[in-house]
């Protein structure tokens, strides 16, 4: 019995697992949410930081100046949190530039070492978005310092293979996904 458990555990970690890609509606919704956050709360909080800076320049009282500096620091912390949330909803470089730079940016933010193998011809908008979110979401589950290889093939039927090795000599793991795109 113990041998069977060991065998199942071994094959469970070495056989490729399947990842569930986000559907088209989810990808579109996530794009919209990040934009709302960026153009709404983040933009208004950045404007608030400017206003605090303006008030600070007109104040002569040391105590008030210190309190304004504290408030500005808190605003900066809030923006840092908004940045993290926004990046997880829809990575900004993926939104503005594309799949390769977008995934490199997410990997960098997570402290991962990425080897990326993409098709020679650029994917369509839907495939780029859904594939990018699928891989970026998986990156969020990996420990910093992990080495991760991502291979993407196909155009309408996109096949994704992610191999990762977490630091500390762990067994490499493989994940796969197939996306049917319009």
């Amino acid at each position: 019995m113990r041998r069977l458990v060991r065998w199942l555990h071994h094959w469970g970690t070495s056989l490729p697992g399947l990842l569930r890609p986000p559907d088209r509606t989810t990808a579109f919704l996530r794009y919209g949410l990040e934009r709302t956050l960026h153009d709404g709360a983040a933009a208004e909080t950045s404007a608030l930081a400017l206003e605090l800076g303006m008030i600070s320049s007109a104040v002569a009282d040391r105590d008030v100046e210190k309190r304004l500096a504290d408030a500005q620091r808190r605003v900066t912390d809030i923006l840092e949190d908004l940045r993290k949330v926004g990046s997880m909803i829809y990575p900004p470089v993926l939104a503005t530039t594309g799949l390769g730079p977008g995934l490199h940016a997410v990997a960098e933010g997570r402290g991962l070492r990425l080897r990326l193998d993409l098709p020679s011809t650029e994917l369509g908008a839907e495939a780029r978005s859904r594939t990018g979110l699928l891989v970026a979401d998986h990156f969020q589950t990996l420990r910093p310092g992990s080495v991760v290889r991502v291979r993407v093939r196909g155009r309408r039927l996109v096949r994704v293979r992610i191999t990762d090795q977490q630091p500390g000599g762990a067994m490499p793991r493989e994940r796969r996904a197939v996306l049917r795109c319009a």
Partner: peptide, 12 residues
């Protein structure tokens, strides 16, 4: 630069 990091007369 980040937007909120230039929010001061001196730093800007």
């Amino acid at each position: 630069r980040l937007k909120e990091r230039i929010a001061g007369v001196r730093v800007l």
